[in-house]
């Protein structure tokens, strides 16, 4: 059992959730309430990581984060180290490839709030921020929780992008999914089996929670 990799994966998933929660709230809310000319394009861009092969996506991120890219150079200038093959680079990649898993359910959660209820909040004198806090978040939380659970579970399981952007540096970028692959390559079937079982249990648990929350959200809407 490679505890270092498991802890690294949990740390990566945790930070991804922390960073994506506000993004999911504001982007999801924006897409749920507004209609604008380029909305279809924005929604397609958000969904892109879902359909692109992870290696292709990882390849572009590698190019985008590399030492010769503007992002990579800016990162080096500020933090004094490279973005690729570091935990920070991995986290940034993780945030980007989890956008659809975070934003989509959040958007659905906000869309489920009737327009008149939001308008009532304004007519009660609530500013947009107060309305978000007092009315919208309490009503959209099943969608937001689903978003966070999916993001967490998906981060634990991602393989291709992590390998492309992070490499496989133990303690820095070697996640549990990559560790399992390495174990199998090294014919350590027992070790791979244990870790796979742990990952299976975590994933099953989180997905079960998601379905249960979706059912609750559905019931609330009916």
């Amino acid at each position: 059992m490679d505890w270092t990799s498991l802890l690294l994966s949990l740390r990566l998933a945790g930070w991804t959730v922390v960073i994506l929660l506000p993004v999911a709230i504001f982007v999801g809310r924006f897409l749920a309430y507004r209609s604008f000319a380029a909305k279809g394009l924005v929604e397609a861009l958000v969904m892109l990581p879902l359909v692109l092969p992870p290696t292709v996506f990882g390849f572009y991120l590698l190019l985008g984060f590399g030492a010769r890219s503007p992002i990579g150079q800016a990162w080096v200038a500020v933090f004094g180290e490279q973005l690729v093959f570091t935990f920070q680079g991995l986290l940034l990649a993780s945030v980007i490839f989890n956008l659809p898993f975070a934003i989509q359910p959040a958007q659905r959660g906000f869309e489920a709030i009737p327009l008149q209820v939001r308008e009532a909040a304004a007519c009660c004198g609530m500013s947009p921020m107060r309305s978000l806090w007092k009315v919208e978040l309490p009503l959209a939380w099943p969608g937001l929780l689903t978003a966070m659970v999916l993001t967490f579970a998906h981060t634990l399981g991602e393989f291709g992008i992590v390998l492309m952007v992070g490499g496989s540096i133990p303690g820095k970028t070697k996640t549990i999914a990559i560790s399992i692959y390495d174990k199998v390559q090294g014919f350590d079937m027992a070790g791979a089996g244990t870790m796979s079982a742990v990952l299976l249990a975590i994933s099953l648990g989180t997905i079960t929670l998601t379905f249960w929350l979706s059912a609750r959200l559905g019931k609330r809407l009916s």
Partner: peptide, 29 residues
């Protein structure tokens, strides 16, 4: 902006906040 106008509005669907008690709904304004 709507929230700065002192209006009282009763909506067709009432649009009560479903997660608040009747009293909390009234207090929310």
């Amino acid at each position: 902006a709507a929230h700065l106008r002192h209006v009282g509005m009763v909506f067709q669907s009432y649009a009560l906040f479903p997660h608040m008690t009747a009293e909390a709904n009234v207090m929310s304004a």
